[in-house]
Each structure stands twice: as structure tokens, then as C-alpha cells.
Design a binder for these strands. Structure first.
Lengths: 196, 196
DNA sequence: GAGTGTGAAATTGTTCACAGCG
DNA sequence: CGCTGTGAACAATTTCACACTC
């Protein structure tokens, strides 16, 4: 989040920014900003603030955004296609190198520069040339089996859009994006409002 | 999350479930489960556990999932189309009642049963028949202006897929889903692994 | 005996406030 | 004088442990 704010300031041409300014943009507090940033080192100058481009570059390094990562998509439905087509990801260093599906109607179709491959090829492909991040866009029922195959193929990081908690070894990092859950949270906010 | 676990147990036909079992499925701890559930009341029986269907129904009520909510989509790109087409949302009580876009090439096209309308009609449509939740699938640059118009039209709950922090009055509940942010988090996990 | 509900203890996270530097 | 970096105070959350019930 700090990086996103810093990049805004970069575009505005600001040379330095104070913890107070960062906090206002990021929805935080000045003390919180200073504590968070100090975890990784002393980037600011007293009396001046934080140097915008240098700190942005530093955070990019910390986050590993100074290199490119190889992504494979499994489940090339509309959501998957939306992701592959999203230019913002390539700009940030995330390259989709393959897309897979189990549906014969989808296999062979093109999404941007990728041709959708048969999910049966997944294991062999992973063995041939690895991937850094596996993106799961399959229905919930298929997600766990696909995740297991990704991990067996050497993938240690998974972005999961299926609405199930994946059970994977602890060395695998999983991030879940579950629209159902998000909407249920909003539903709770709406329900609260009505009864108050 | 507890509701999702309970529904799994419901499908399996289990009549009761212990805090320990819920914790294992949900990736939590037994004490945490008991504290969380006790916030809303005493649902369990000592020595037995929690009654699965009754508790699920109770949580649905708490979350407001015992009624239907009206959603409008603004920004009918691939992501938006994927959301409108996702059957899981209708099953949970979330109905898309309209979709809008600014691109003349998209206006008039169909997404499932919806015809994409001109975003210029948004304000009048909201005045005519309200919506509960606004879903923003526009590019980042357009998101704030659309959010303002949604709020002026009476929407008090927003699901935002654009990669910007929306500034809105405090009575409006915003949930952000930002793939870029999620992938950056995974990038950090990958970068950490390499340097350890 | 199994398992909830809950105060009290332990831990974790946030805010304060100020010394110290540019 | 403005603003960071940080220990100390404070607040929130999680875990413990046990009385109580089925």
C-alpha cells in the first residue's frame, strides 16, 4: 500500500514525503507509517521526510518487484481470461506463461497471446519449465486437486480464486481472493444498518 | 468463514460439530471459534458441540443472507462480465440488476440476461430504482467519480476492484479487491524465500 | 467424559511522546 | 523548527484454564 501511494507521489514529481502525508493517502496514522517503514530500515531524514523515488525503489526491492515472475493459470474461464488480459499485471512484472483448462470447448482457444492447453499437460509442462505462481480459477470442486498438482510441480506460491480453503504444505504461500466472502461482508454491513 | 465450513458439514449430513472440528477446517483454534461465536450468543451445548443446520441458519440471518440484495455493475469489462456470470452469487442472494459502461462498443451488448447500459444513465436509473451494492470494475482513473455518483444515488455499500483507495463518507462501506496487491504480497513471499 | 462459555493472563499491535538530527 | 526513529504506555486480541452442563 505504501508503494502504491509513493508511486502516486512519484507521478506528481514530489521529491520527499512526510509520514503524515503518507498516512493521509494510505488511510493510516503517521506513527504507524514510521513504525512500519522502520521495520525494514531507516529510510527517512529528520526534518525532511522520506525520499520518494529512493524509498519506492527500495520497497520494490523488498517486495521482489525488481524482477519478473512466471505465472500459470489453471481454469481459463471468464475470470481467468480477465486476469491474463489485465495489462497492469505485466507492468508490475507478472507474466502469464501458460493457461490450462479441462473443458474441450476451451482447449485451443486463445486468450491474448496464450493458447489454452489441456490441463492434462500441466504436470509435464511444470516439469519442463517451472512457474513461480499458480493461479487457480477453477470451480471449487477442482481446486484442491489442481493445487496439489501445482505444488508437486514445484510451485510454492498460489493465488486462489476458488471458494475453498486449500490444504497445502506450510512452505507453500496461498492467497485467497473470494468474492463471495467479500459480498457476504458487505451484506453484513447492510443488515446492520437496517436493524440499527 | 464459519458459515462456509458449516455448510460443508451440512452437506456431509453432520448434526453437530465441535469448536475443535470447526477450527481445523477453518484454520483457527478451538478457543478462537468459541470466542467468536459467543459474541453473537450461546449457540452450542456443553458436551455436544454446535448444532450444524441451526447455527448455519443463525449466521445467515446475522450476515443478512436471508434476503436478496440488488447489485449494479459499473465497468462491464471482462472482470465485470465474469462476476455477472458467476452463478454462485445469485445462489447467495446477490442479483445484478444493471450493468453500465462508458465504451460505446460495449453499450448494448448482453452479459447473461443484462443489456449493458450507457453509464450516463446511471444517475437517473439509481433515482428511479435503488441498488444496495455498487460494484466498480472500471479503470482506476474513473473509479472515484463513479463511486461518488453511486453514493449520490443512494448506494451505501461498494465493492471496488479498481486499484485506488476510494475517499467516501464514513457511512459508506467499501471493500477493495485488488489483484495487484495480492500478487505483490506473493512476490514478497517469493523474494523472502530466495534470500533466506 | 466431552465440550461450551468466559473471566483472567499472555501476547500482540497501536499510539504516544520525545530525544536527536538535518 | 520540522520530522524521523523508537522506547515506553496503552489498547486490542488471542490463548489459557476451568467452572459448568449435557
Amino acid at each position: 500500500l505504501y508503494l502504491h501511494c509513493l508511486e502516486e507521489y512519484e507521478r506528481e514529481g514530489k521529491a520527499t514525503v512526510s509520514s503524515r502525508a503518507l498516512a493521509e493517502r494510505g488511510g493510516s496514522t503517521p506513527a504507524q507509517v514510521r513504525k512500519d517503514l522502520s521495520f525494514f530500515g531507516s529510510f527517512g531524514r529528520r526534518g525532511i521526510g522520506y525520499p520518494v523515488p529512493a524509498l519506492a525503489q527500495r520497497i520494490r526491492g523488498i517486495l521482489g518487484l525488481d524482477r519478473r515472475w512466471r505465472l500459470v493459470l489453471v481454469g481459463a474461464g471468464r475470470l481467468g481470461a480477465a486476469l491474463v488480459g489485465y495489462r497492469g499485471l505485466a507492468e508490475r512484472g507478472f507474466d502469464f506463461v501458460a493457461a490450462y483448462d479441462a473443458d474441450p470447448a476451451r482447449i485451443g482457444t486463445r486468450i491474448e497471446e496464450l493458447t489454452v492447453r489441456d490441463v492434462a499437460d500441466l504436470d509435464a509442462d511444470l516439469a519442463a519449465g517451472g512457474a513461480d505462481i499458480g493461479v487457480i480459477g477453477t470451480p471449487a470442486e477442482a481446486a484442491q486437486a489442481i493445487a496439489d498438482r501445482l505444488v508437486r510441480g514445484g510451485v510454492r506460491t498460489v493465488l486462489n480464486f476458488a471458494s475453498v480453503k486449500l490444504v497445502l504444505p506450510p512452505e507453500v504461500t496461498v492467497t485467497n481472493v473470494d468474492m463471495t466472502l467479500e459480498l457476504e461482508t458487505l451484506s453484513y454491513a447492510l443488515a446492520r444498518r437496517r436493524s440499527d
